[in-house]
Design a protein around this nucleic acid. Structure first.
Lengths: 217, 217
DNA sequence: TGATAATTTGACCGGTTGGTAAAACATTAC
DNA sequence: GTAATGTTTTACCAACCGGTCAAATTATCA
């Protein structure tokens, strides 16, 4: 057999699983740093520690690699939002959503940058996912937030823009890491900046969304 | 004379000014959409409506074009922060800073994406500007904010992370425009989304930073 | 007008890029 | 062991990319 991608429909070799894993790891590194068009197969091959034709044996095109990577990462990327619980305490839910998003920005910055690059450049490869699954999920959670506001549990606000604000403020620490560190200076560029950010963002969102006396349910 | 860039040190032709303008406009369009490595001189030339060698007559390399573009745009991009007035009313200053940043995201999204692309990819061409002029400016304004907090005019908070939060939430509407529109759906993708965003962000930041009874100066 | 300088173009070049072909090599199943 | 299958490598290609060059064209101005 010469076509590994076809063989995959049957059963995958141990080697296949290992190598595909290796390749996607390298692809994440490179795509996240240079974007799709800015990345080269040679670069990815080098990071993956294999030759270019070898790499193309597992993924027939650059786009196939990118697509496989996105498919694998997108789901886990949305997990924090999925865990947003309608039954939970509103303030606690928002707080822990911010926490989780910030932890992801700290622990998985490459995944964040992968999407940031893609979206920044008009999301040519994931637009459908944004309009479909992502929109559906956000619509659902926005409804939850709207209900909380209506019940007077949090301040009235546009739930979509609230979600955007949480996304942008947290992912900022992954996507614009270089700028954050440049501005903070070496002395504040330790991992402590994530603690500081968490403290600030909690204060901002929790206080900013608290129901104040003049606006009862 | 054959070297236009040298001639520039003397006096620039009308044609030179016009063409350079045209080129930088096209370069902004292309660089903002595809990033530096993802952009090609041919693309820029096509958008600018001239041939590649002609374009290279005005800017000798792709990098020279990029650099000229950044130089031209960076200053105006920082204007809103510069206008941040230590003598003004804190709440009003923060409110109008958010307003201005949001207006820029709406009116000059390409400029925002130009920097976003650059920073996302580790800012290879502007790192010095970030560590120098940008950091200096932010340090200065952070001190103003710190003083306001100390005087009890706004809630105590980390001024750097406050600035980051304003940057990220406002620029989000330029940089991640595609995603914002995908999530909001066609029905809410009109220009009205900037009004909604402004309302939400004002509420968030103003309420979130208001001094609350339990924390006097 | 004509001379001079400024601008534009087409043809081209060496290096890179995504991708292919085929043969060499390794692994597995019997 | 050996045959079939799976994996890796070497050599290569056509398209593209950043950039050059010299000639052609156009604008400027005495």
């Amino acid at each position: 057999m010469v076509l590994p991608r076809a063989a995959k429909t049957q059963r995958r070799t141990r080697i296949q699983e290992e190598k595909e894993e290796q390749i996607l790891e390298a692809a994440l590194e490179v795509f996240a740093t240079h974007g799709f068009r800015g990345s080269t197969i040679d670069q990815i091959a080098e990071v993956a520690g294999m030759s270019k034709p070898n790499l193309l044996y597992y993924f027939r095109t650059k786009e196939a690699m990118h697509r496989a990577l996105i498919d694998r990462v997108l789901d886990s990327w949305l997990d924090p939002l999925r865990e947003f619980d309608a039954e939970g305490n509103p303030v606690a839910e928002i707080r822990s959503y911010i926490r989780r998003k910030l932890e992801m920005a700290r622990d998985f910055p490459r995944e964040s940058r992968l999407f940031a690059n893609e979206v920044l450049q008009s999301a040519p490869h994931i637009l459908d996912e944004l309009k479909g699954p992502l929109k559906t999920l956000v619509d659902e959670k926005a409804e939850v937030i709207r209900a909380w506001a209506k019940a007077g549990k949090i301040a009235k606000c546009d739930p979509y823009h609230l979600i955007f604000a949480i996304w942008s403020t947290t992912q900022h620490y992954a996507d614009f890491d270089v700028q954050v560190r440049a501005v903070l200076g070496i002395e504040h560029s330790g991992e402590g900046r994530f603690e500081d950010a968490a403290r600030f963002l909690e204060q901002l969102f929790i206080t900013g969304l608290a129901v104040h006396d003049s606006a009862p349910s």
